[in-house]
Design a binder for these strands. Structure first.
Lengths: 350, 350
DNA sequence: TTGTACGCGTTATCAG
DNA sequence: CTGATAACGCGTACAA
């Protein structure tokens, strides 16, 4: 009795030659079937496809990579403090890659190092990457895009401003989202609103700050320099930035923190001083990380569709390769939404 | 004027033949140098190494993969709700892989699917993985280890119990760690201690529960069934499990939650009822995720060295390949430590 | 100790 | 439309 399953564990690996022999055609014809070559007799194609189906044959990616000079790997390059973002981008990209022949290779780099650019280049060149997704703040560096071009590697940059052609960008409109959030504060009656800005060198920090300033100027509210505190996108920096803001007299009745980690720091600092949130101080953050619903009170925040952006980024890369229905190009800009929880209330009466 | 840099962007890619020609030796000799073959004339080796250094040549991984029938890729396979763990394992593995020729390919799977095993097998086979790291609860499935053996792929399983040979395992001793945490509660004077268990099918849940029971029985404290609530390792499940515990009369004076997410849920549920933590209720969690220090009060918890475990797992896989000093085999078991924050206090007087 | 010839599985060229 | 034949870059018998 022969082995029942053709795709047995210890079955010898099938090659394109086996398929060619079984189908009674040449290697190249099988190759054409695999690569969806348009010029093929319908009959031969179906014959080959049947054999492929029956045998469970899958082409060897290593051999293809060698012959094509290009691997079926997508690289994810980042150097980002925001773990939530990395994870969500991974998830989105992975969703897009699922069921395709592509795999995701992750590659953190050190943007402080003098050799970052060389690192990235050699990563791309050595692995013959099919494409790379670049996360902020690395994505804000045009030199990386240039490297990709030079090496003939597709790329998509993620960011909070349009830095490149649509085919190379997925962008979130942080500025508008923050403006909307701050307008919400203003509608509640707040006039002294503090900002905890993100670190220099992050475009997102700049965009969010500008959104903040925009909403204020729209409402005719002036923004004294003292109401702006510098942060580093970390919890600790949020705590100390908040403390400097609370030292003011009169102190702000609301604070917009440029991300949730810092917003959590604001909450923490407020509690240390016995300041009630939201009755005496309103808080809004940015990111909608899980922490916002774990703390008390749950934080009002801005949610951006990171997973969808990751999916779009990967799809932009492989879209042409997988065809079917993906001819409709992926959107490039994604809009965020204000998530209202319990950290915002009207300001206390003076 | 000639191009200044030899490793110019548009320089043609160097092959082993170029190096051989430049060094005045044969292909095979260069190959030997690359693969650290011991039988080589010292002079020839140095000559070749010099050429390699000057030209900046790096061997083509695709060609090596094809010739060797094995890729220089490490796979990370998981299906885990604990994002913190995934990220930290990635970080640890990446640290170990940094500077080597290996890359990390991530592959989430759906353990509920009927085809998980096939998915994993085809992932390994198709990519000709050098090795895989398997995260819990997937790692608890012996069938996966068997697949790896069959396909000739190295593997390391991460888990909270010894399920395999040391070379195939990195394990954390959850049981002891939880026992220690609960002893701490007992030392503070607690006698009615509730447990929020993890989900069935997770070995970690079982181990943590056993550690909990161990500490209690050591102290001669009985554990009525009512003091054990089921959880799913999620915040929401922590909230509802805690509510059922707080419905008890007399209610527990302390609760051990099998992970931090649920511990945060306990804190949340306590606050909803106006129960003061830690004065009226002590809480201990497990994982030491960032959330523990963001909530109020900061949570006492158990920290396990996930990053170090990730590093060890990767090193076990590639150790023999990179030689130098890594002959000392990586440790297989890692111990956790109790991190004391502010969510534990002596029980209130009756 | 070193070199020659060939194979790995696929795609590309260019005939037919 | 299809099929020989030559790459792709590297590793390994085997011979020198």
């Amino acid at each position: 009795m022969p082995k029942p399953t053709p795709d047995d564990a210890n079955a010898p690996k099938l090659t394109i030659n086996d398929i060619a022999a079984l189908a009674g055609v040449s290697k190249k014809t099988v190759s054409r079937v695999i690569n969806q070559s348009p010029l093929l007799n319908q009959a031969t194609r179906e014959k080959v496809e049947a054999v492929i189906r029956e045998t469970g044959y899958t082409p060897n990616p290593q051999a293809r990579a060698l012959a094509l000079g290009r691997n079926f790997l997508i690289g994810l390059v980042y150097d980002n403090p925001n773990q939530q973002m990395i994870l969500n981008m991974q998830r989105g990209a992975l969703e897009a890659l699922h069921g395709t022949e592509f795999e995701l290779v992750i590659r953190p780099v050190d943007r402080g190092s003098a050799k970052v650019m060389d690192d990235i280049r050699s990563f791309i060149v050595r692995q013959r990457l099919y494409g790379v997704i670049i996360l902020p703040p690395l994505s804000e560096n045009d030199a990386i895009a240039r490297i990709c071009d030079e090496e003939g590697c597709r790329y998509v940059r993620m960011g909070s401003a349009v830095l490149d052609d649509p085919e190379h960008m997925v962008v979130s409109n942080d500025r508008d989202a923050v403006a909307e959030a701050v307008r919400h504060l203003i509608q509640q009656g707040h006039k002294r609103i503090g900002l905890i800005a993100g670190p220099h060198g992050f475009r997102s920090a700049k965009e969010r700050r500008e959104g903040f300033e925009l909403a204020l100027s729209e409402a005719g509210i002036s923004l004294p320099r003292s109401l702006v505190a510098d942060g580093q996108y970390t919890f600790e920096s949020g705590v100390s930035a908040c403390e400097s803001l609370l030292d003011l007299s009169p102190r702000p009745t609301a604070i917009f923190a440029s991300n949730d980690e810092m917003a959590a720091g604001v909450l923490y600092a407020a509690r240390l001083r016995g300041i009630e949130v939201p009755d005496q101080l309103s808080i809004i953050g940015f990111d909608d990380t899980p922490i916002t619903s774990r703390v008390w009170p749950p934080l009002t925040t801005v949610r951006w569709p990171i997973v969808a952006m990751g999916r779009a980024a990967a799809l932009k890369l492989i879209g042409t390769a997988i065809g079917e229905g993906h001819d409709v190009s992926e959107p490039s800009t994604f809009s965020s939404t204000l998530i209202r929880r319990a950290s915002v209330a009207p300001p206390p009466r003076d």
